[in-house]
């Protein structure tokens, strides 16, 4: 069972996720910070942190595979295993999807329970409705590695910008030079004066989220850490698609 514990300690854990955590034989934890891990440890006598698997200079893909191996070793030993991930266990998380896929292939029952993700917090904290102009989400590095088409008429959300461009997946953070590459890419679609929001949801309810507005041109010099997300508001008005509108008007008339 893979559950999400949400982002904010105490606020987001669903009753169902808590129940899974309490009823399992073993709980594996990949959470946002040490205090959240302490909180989780109080819910079950056998909470095993996956944090020790990360290492500076070690490929994160190797870390994720090791996470999967550890979880499945207990499943194969006949134990009821719950893996608790911060946020939503299926959003920007490789290991939970892989673990479920392998467990099912081997004939075990495996399931994912959704949790409140950083994306959900972002909409609430920034007052953004993705339905208003549309909203594009990209993993920041992917935006650079591949030819993607950005629509500046919609919101753009870039995840994992703190480690952008780390091709070896082995760094804890990447520096200004890497962010400058991102600025150059974004400058193809946005003016340099356009505002970018650096956002980080609060993991403790006594704290406020990080919401910092900065001009795109100054983004390279800004402090961006692994938990931070970049949000770019639309820079262009929506352009009506007259051809489609005409077709729809015609359709409406025929159906009237």
């Amino acid at each position: 069972m893979c559950v999400g514990i949400g982002i904010t300690l105490g606020s987001h854990l669903t009753p169902l996720a808590r129940n899974y955590i309490e009823k399992s034989d073993v709980v594996f934890a990949a959470v946002s910070d040490g205090i959240v891990e302490l909180w989780l440890s109080a819910m079950h006598p056998d909470v095993r942190s996956l944090q020790s698997l990360y290492g500076e200079g070690k490929s994160r893909m190797r870390t994720y595979r090791e996470m999967v191996d550890l979880m499945l070793a207990e499943v194969r030993a006949g134990k009821h295993v719950c893996a608790a991930f911060y946020g939503h266990p299926g959003v920007f998380a490789w290991a939970p999807h892989k673990a479920i896929e392998i467990a099912r292939r081997e004939g075990y029952r495996a399931h994912m329970e959704s949790g409140i993700s950083a994306e959900d917090c972002l909409y609430a904290d920034l007052g953004i409705d993705p339905g208003e102009f549309g909203c594009q989400h990209y993993e920041a590095s992917q935006l650079l590695y591949y030819q993607r088409r950005i629509d500046p008429g919609a919101y753009l959300v870039l995840w994992q910008a703190g480690v952008i461009g780390d091709k070896a997946l082995a760094r804890v953070a990447t520096d200004n030079a890497y962010r400058q590459v991102l600025v150059d890419r974004l400058a193809e679609d946005y003016p340099l004066a356009h505002k970018v929001i650096i956002y980080r949801a609060a993991t403790l309810a006594v704290h406020a989220p990080r919401i910092e507005r900065i001009a795109l041109g100054k983004l390279a010099a800004a402090r961006i850490e692994p938990p931070d997300t970049l949000v770019i508001a639309p820079a262009r008005k929506l352009v009506p698609n007259t051809k489609m509108l005409r077709r729809l008007t015609k359709l409406a008339r025929t159906h009237a």
Partner: peptide, 14 residues
């Protein structure tokens, strides 16, 4: 409390 502030890196690699 003797804990680390941010413990995780990221959970997905592109």
């Amino acid at each position: 409390l003797g804990v680390r502030e941010t413990m995780y890196c990221t959970n997905q690699g592109t």
